[in-house]
Design a protein around this nucleic acid. Structure first.
Lengths: 238, 238
DNA sequence: CCTGCCATTAAGTATATACATTTAAAGGGT
DNA sequence: ACCCTTTAAATGTATATACTTAATGGCAGG
């Protein structure tokens, strides 16, 4: 129970409280003593306890409401963090050789679902880029992306010949919202050709919609051969 | 630029700084003024600025080092949050009817990969549960789970006849680490039968390993018909 | 018994102050 | 020029204090 002085006090309090939760001393739904009482118990200021409890609440361990106090959260709906990086960094992290290949890059009329996501008139022109990302000698990911040139005029000048739009966008365009959907689909003829697989092969498909201040700036469909690529979540940070 | 008084001051500062980052006024890698200067600029205490900047750093927008100051972070590898809930809650959230069905529940010798994950001798007995989760009249998820009865003796007494181990574990067992892998696979004959699909159908497969204080307590393989189920990430919180 | 008001409680925010920690940069000696 | 020491700048933590906000639970009045 003796505290490690090389560690900030609020972290010590945090760890102690987490221990009580994990050991079952404070079960799911249990009422946690109020900040003032804990401050007295730990012999520190209320703000120190406040910070510890606030961070535990941010991490999903506690639920806090004014006047009603602090309770141990039900664990049912805790999130977990999937890391999403630039595709070339993913490949590099696996110790393999990355190569980018542009398939097509055209200004075209956006199909209706894309146009409505961008909040523009159907029939308006925008940039459509299709490309492949290689890892050693295998196709690691195909990318089929629409870019709202209305929102990002600079994209219209990018050739995307030697580096993918993924990378350019991450490096150059501010974004505020990202929405992802992940599904397993069977490869259609077009996808099978691009991924050099047989039609019907299972694909891990990520649909990513990136927005800036409420407005969609780009939507992308990313396909991975199912068994080649697995997304791995990080363990819970504690 | 006038501040909304119904909003905490530190959030106002946070928003202002985020605007400067997103608008490009503070480009990637740019040096942010020190806390004292910002405090003077916003006419508030240093601690208020400190909290705003600390949270922005926690969210990955800034990088801070003592003495060296605060800089705008490169955006390359920001994570996103996938929510994981109890399967019955998932179905309920879709407005459909949930039904649980137990297939098998036996004490059996764990296969080697499972035993080694649990850190126990190969050949030791543990609980193996196979079940299905229905959404209306379709199989929403199959669950193939091993439970370390060494770590959770109470599980040996659970019949899992009317509610799945997923739910019981979440409600009753503390856990500290969760690791996920997500992949797309083709249904084998056994999976096809359980999911009432043809063999070869694409499945979204989630492998989940749950640990408590460094020790694995349960591993599960969850299969979803690929096109039925999509994991949707939450938009970035700002 | 029900309703609505209100006091009280607990969390949330803000400030001034102080001191600790890290480390870049300046300075000084060889 | 190089290395070592010192200084100071910036962030990090801790405390006391005060006020704000939300919401519960009790009380008064109908």
């Amino acid at each position: 129970m003796s505290r490690n002085t090389s560690q900030p006090l609020y972290k010590h309090v945090k760890k102690q409280m987490l221990d009580r939760i994990r050991s079952g001393k404070l079960g799911f739904g249990a009422l946690v003593p109020c900040e003032a009482d804990l401050a007295e118990e730990f012999g520190c200021a209320r703000l120190t306890v406040h910070r510890a409890l606030r961070e535990l609440a941010d991490e999903g361990f506690l639920e806090r409401r004014r006047r009603a106090g602090t309770r141990v959260a039900q664990r049912a709906s805790r999130g977990f963090q999937l890391s999403v990086s630039r595709v070339d960094e993913e490949v590099f992290a696996r110790g393999e050789v990355y190569r980018y290949e542009l398939i097509t890059r055209v200004a075209a009329t956006a199909p209706n679902p894309v146009a409505s996501a961008f909040g523009i008139a159907p029939g308006a022109e925008m940039l459509h880029v299709v490309c492949r990302h290689w890892s050693n000698d295998r196709v690691f990911q195909t990318e089929d992306r629409w870019i709202n040139t209305d929102a990002i005029p600079a994209a219209a000048d990018q050739p995307f010949r030697h580096a993918g739009p993924n990378r350019w966008l991450l490096d150059n365009v501010p974004f505020s919202e990202v929405r992802h959907e992940i599904a397993a689909v069977a490869a259609g003829p077009e996808e099978a050709r691009l991924l050099k697989l047989d039609a019907g092969h299972p694909l891990l498909q990520i649909r990513r919609e990136t927005g800036w201040q409420g407005r969609s700036v780009t939507v992308a469909v990313l396909n991975h051969p199912g068994e080649l690529f697995t997304l791995t979540s990080q363990p819970q940070a504690v």
